[in-house]
Design a protein around this nucleic acid. Structure first.
Lengths: 225, 225
DNA sequence: AATTCCTAGACCGACGGTCGGTCGATAAAT
DNA sequence: ATTTATCGACCGACCGTCGGTCTAGGAATT
C-alpha cells in the first residue's frame, strides 16, 4: 500500500519547501501550483487564501514537533534536565548538518519571511508553552525554580528564545567564520542560558542548552565551510 | 514664516497616518499619493520603494523619541530612577488619551502591521539600546545591577518590552472592560517589572514603570469607555 | 541657454483571488 | 440494469490591484 498523502498535505509540503527556500513573500501562488502541477482553482478549493495556507502550514510544523517534546515531559527526570532536553529538541542543534542549518536560518530570518517567522512564533507559543508551564511547575515543586507567574513566564521564555535565535542567526549567516564569529555564538548561547536561569529564579549555571561536544562539532563545521 | 516642511516629510507624515490607521500592507502607494495630492513619479522621486518609505518613517519616529530620552540620561539621578523614567517615556503612558491609545494599539498590533511592528522594533533597538546600555553601566557602578553582558542585556530588555506590549495590547483591545481585564493589565505590567529586575540582577520591587496614579487614571478611562 | 531638479501620469508585469464551468464517481430512481 | 441526479475535486481564463518604471515636460538654478 502506498503512503496515502492527501492532496492538501501535498500542497502544504510543496509550499513549505518553497517558503523555506525562497521566502514567503517571494513565493507566489503560481509558483506553488506550478510545482504541485495543479490549477489555481484547485488551490483555492483547499485553501481560503495564501495566509490560510501559511496558517495551516505552521500549525502542522509545530504539531509535528509536539509528540517528541511531550515524550520528554513524561520522563521521570528533574525539571532542569527536562528543560535542557526540551530546548535541545526545539532548536535544531541535533540535526547538525551545518549547510542545512544555514539554509534554514537564511530562510527564516530573511526579510521576506517576517510573516512566516511571526506565525511560527505565535503557533509555537500556543502549542508549546503549556509544556514549558508543566516543567516550570515541576521545578517549583522541586525547589529549583522560584517564579511568581508560571504561565506568563513560560510564554515569556519562549518569546525570548526567538530574540536569541535571531541574534545567533546573524553569526550563522556570517560570510566568514573566524574566532570572532565563534565567540559571538558561544557568548549569545551562554547569555541565553543565564537569562533563562534568572527568569526562572534558578541557580546560576544550572542550565546547559547545548552540550559542549555538540557545539564543538558545529563550530568545526563552520570553520570547514 | 511658515513652518517649513519638506515635501518628503509631508509624504512621510501622510503615509504615517495611513499606516497607523489602516495598516502597512493595506495602504497602497496610490492611497498615499492620492491623499498627498501628488503623482506616482513624485513619490518615487523621493523614495526608492514602499519599503524604503517605511524605513525612513520608522527611523524618523524613533529619532523623534531620542532627544527627550537623552535628556533623562544626562540627569543626575540614580540608574533605577532613570530606568523608570525612560520606560515611562518610551511607552505611551504619558499621553493618557485612552481612545488614542486604543487606536494606536489596534494599528500596531494588527495582522496587517507585522512588517511595521518589526521595523519599529529593529530601529528602536538600534537607536535606543545604547541609552539603556549607559543606564545599565551606571547601575553596575552604583552596585544596584549585576549583569554579565550589559550590551546584550540592553538589547534583550528592549526586545522583551515588545512581547509585553503585545500581551498588554490584548487587554487594551478587549471589547469589554471588566475587573478581569484590569487585573490582567496590572499583572502583565507587574510581571514585566519583575522580569526586568531579574534580568538586571536588581532588587525585587525596585522598578516601577508606571506610577500608581497614572495606572488608575488609565483604568478609569477604560471603565468609562 | 544649459543643466539639474522636480513633477506628472500612462503604462507594465506580477500578484492574490474569483468564477463559471467540466468531469468522473457515487447514489437514487426508474 | 439503466438512466438520472447529485456531489465535489478540479480547471484555467479572467479580474482588479498592486508596486514599480518610463518618458516627457516644467521649474528652478547656474
Amino acid at each position: 500500500m502506498e503512503t496515502e498523502i492527501s492532496k492538501k498535505d501535498e500542497i502544504i509540503n510543496i509550499a513549505s519547501e518553497l517558503f523555506f527556500s525562497k521566502g514567503y513573500s517571494n513565493t507566489s501562488i503560481q509558483n506553488i501550483i506550478d510545482k504541485a502541477d495543479i490549477a489555481k482553482g484547485t488551490f483555492y478549493h483547499y485553501f481560503k487564501s495564501k495566509d490560510d495556507l501559511l496558517n495551516e502550514m505552521t500549525k502542522k510544523h509545530v504539531s509535528n514537533l509536539y509528540p517528541q517534546l511531550h515524550e520528554i515531559i513524561k520522563m521521570e527526570i528533574s525539571a532542569i534536565e527536562k528543560l535542557n532536553m526540551l530546548f535541545q529538541s526545539t532548536s535544531n542543534w541535533k540535526s547538525l548538518n551545518i549547510e542545512f542549518m544555514k539554509l534554514l536560518t537564511k530562510a527564516v530570518y530573511s526579510d521576506s519571511n517576517i510573516v512566516l517567522r511571526n506565525k511560527l512564533l505565535e503557533e509555537t507559543i500556543k502549542q508549546i508553552s503549556p509544556l514549558y508551564l508543566k516543567i516550570i511547575n515541576q521545578g517549583i515543586k522541586e525547589g529549583v525554580f522560584e517564579v511568581e507567574d508560571p504561565g506568563m513566564t513560560a510564554q515569556f521564555i519562549l518569546t525570548s528564545f526567538t530574540s536569541n535565535s535571531e541574534e545567533m542567526s546573524k553569526y550563522l549567516l556570517a560570510d566568514k567564520y573566524n574566532q570572532e564569529v565563534i565567540d559571538g555564538l558561544k557568548r549569545t548561547l551562554s547569555f541565553s542560558e543565564r537569562m533563562v536561569e534568572r527568569m526562572l529564579g534558578a541557580e546560576k549555571n544550572s542550565l546547559h542548552f547545548v552540550e559542549v561536544e555538540v557545539l564543538e562539532r558545529l563550530i568545526k563545521g563552520l570553520l570547514e565551510a
